[in-house]
Design a binder for these strands. Sequence first.
DNA 1: GAGTGGTCTAGACCACGTT
DNA 2: ACGTGGTCTAGACCACTCC
Lengths: 234, 234
Amino acid sequence: MTTYRDVKAAILERIVSREWPPGALIPSEEDLARAHGCARATANRALRELAESGIVERRRKAGTRVALRSARGAVFDIPVVRVEIERAGKRYGYRRLARAEHAADDALIGRLDVATGAPALFVRCLHLADGEPYQLEHRWISLDAAPAARAESFADISPNEWLVREIPYSRAEHAFSAATPEQTERDLLRLGADEPVFVIERRTWLGAAPVTYVRLSHPGARYRMVSRLGDAAA
Amino acid sequence: MTTYRDVKAAILERIVSREWPPGALIPSEEDLARAHGCARATANRALRELAESGIVERRRKAGTRVALRSARGAVFDIPVVRVEIERAGKRYGYRRLARAEHAADDALIGRLDVATGAPALFVRCLHLADGEPYQLEHRWISLDAAPAARAESFADISPNEWLVREIPYSRAEHAFSAATPEQTERDLLRLGADEPVFVIERRTWLGAAPVTYVRLSHPGARYRMVSRLGDAAA
DNA sequence: GAGTGGTCTAGACCACGTT
DNA sequence: ACGTGGTCTAGACCACTCC
């Protein structure tokens, strides 16, 4: 039986061998199905998945071509920080530094995408690995989207973990950057004089409603964010 | 006609409304198909795609559950730098700073994953936006995988762009980090005294053969890498 | 207009893993 | 053992877009 994986591998093999170089036209679904002795749906799934991972580009009538790829689709997993630390074989530590309820001001509106005066909860906390500062978390939670957060002190559980358990989301936006830490941040993360921070920002939505904005900073010199390996490979 | 998108949206809607909270069991493909009056294959595609974007988790026999999601699948596009600059409405500039052929030494072997003594080409160049340094590129190319690079001076075209045009790849690995620049880098990027760099590293393979390792550094305070918005949303 | 991809259907068989 | 997901088939109709 010819599977869609077989077809996918066969196509990838021709691309890799440069028999079909970047820009080349790949046979139509029907031709591929005939050549491999399978149903058109099978060839379709192979091509569709190759297109999803950016290896080929498809257009009706124009056909399927080997993509001239820049470098699309680096996929990153950002795990719960506790899991990340424990997976590295270290002891996880947690300290809540601050918790306060605010009405949204202008600065927050830009980040959390809520209306003026909307109730929001701010939490600052520190995650430690083997007692060493690992990640500093600044978090704003929309109390409209997650009213249950009002009853939670976050003294023992991090907002990160609580949200994962309690509030789903349907859309997320991430940004990565490098920054020079402010004095407070430098002290909390016990950073060296010239050491930068690696910053992950995330905003999530539940349907149309913004749920949370978080800024996670790591000691830059000791942290690397590595992408999941490409799934397109054989 | 009920499409797989309809089914997907209907499921997402119940997740978003918390009718099916994180951890909840979702009806089986067969039940969903019956409920929506569609074929099982249609329900299957809806659930499969939701699983691919990490919204649900599937296990044979155990069924499909709303995922307890950390934050998986932030997808980043890393475009050709020239395109990135031009899309921002700026004038693109390019300067090749160095080009040299080496046999791979230990340091390179760790990064490029080639054998000792394998021939490699090193290129350093600078990309500018409106005359301002934008990105510094350190590149090693395996001459086994891309022998044609030997004939290319890279005086007028960046290795980035040349590789995209000439050599396909089937797998890539990315890492992002923050770093303190060395003096040379600081000068080339015209960085302020305390300004960190945002570093993107990429390794690519063509089948089993390593193709290239590149380190791209940006002025950290002026650069943000933002993820494509989630595709799961309605 | 004609070729290509996009999708649906109804049925089938199999693999896996929980029970 | 049995229920669930994983996949294939053969055929069909439609939508887009290039010529």
